[in-house]
Design a protein around this nucleic acid. Structure first.
Lengths: 111, 111
DNA sequence: GCAGAACTACGATGGTTGTCAAACTTTGAT
DNA sequence: ATCAAAGTTTGACAACCATCGTAGTTCTGC
């Protein structure tokens, strides 16, 4: 039996849904961390300021928005960024958001 | 006496604020219409599905986010897109959002 | 000066949503 | 078989925000 609900076709996801997904700082942090990571990450492998149940909620929204793909490895739920598919559906958006997010988060020394 | 509150320096506006501004469909419609318009538009010149007072609310948020600049001409409040400044602060973001928005709104015939 | 046009400001309200704790499920190891 | 680990699900709660109507402000024209 499948433990993970089906992933949507990103091209059918409306822009509204995408922006609603990316407007939340926690979800944006997930996306950014996934973008910076060399490999896929399990849910518990993220640095998040919320409880487990809240994190689950955010992962679900990202999955339903078509931003991430989830799959199980043992008891660990892995997450991968659906970059290519998403870029095709929303060209330039992920790059712009993630880049701006990195500037914001890593804003410390500009000298 | 100034009738319009001061406009922020776009570079000081956090990404969070920008996304919160762009996530609202009415505000995104304002930005898109402004993008498509040849000249500046007065508040009453937009095609919006909300009351006047609500529209004012949205214009204020866009101004405070640094996306639009407002100025009076008689009794008419004019609006202009701060494209260059915004693009410098958030490269690629406006383009990605407006492009995707146009695809969504104008989605009718693909034949 | 007065009327009207064009917006804005002010409360008030309703719906949405991010948050948590507690209980549950599934898998892997002992 | 049992136990722990890793997440999920459910229900409840609080905060935020888009929306509206009404009243107010500023300018133009007569």
């Amino acid at each position: 039996m499948e433990r993970i609900p089906p992933h949507p076709d990103v091209r059918t996801v409306p822009l509204q849904r995408v922006l609603e997904a990316l407007v939340d700082p926690v979800r944006r942090s997930i996306v950014t961390q996934l973008c910076d990571a060399a490999a896929d990450l399990r849910c518990g492998g993220f640095d998040l300021p919320v409880s487990n149940s809240t994190a689950t909620h955010h992962f679900r929204i990202l999955r339903e928005t078509g931003l991430i793909r989830q799959y199980y490895v043992g008891t660990a739920r892995m997450n991968t960024l659906r970059r290519d598919e998403f870029d095709e559906a929303f060209p330039g958006l992920l790059d712009a958001v993630v880049s701006a997010d990195r500037r914001s988060s890593g804003a410390a020394a500009t000298a």
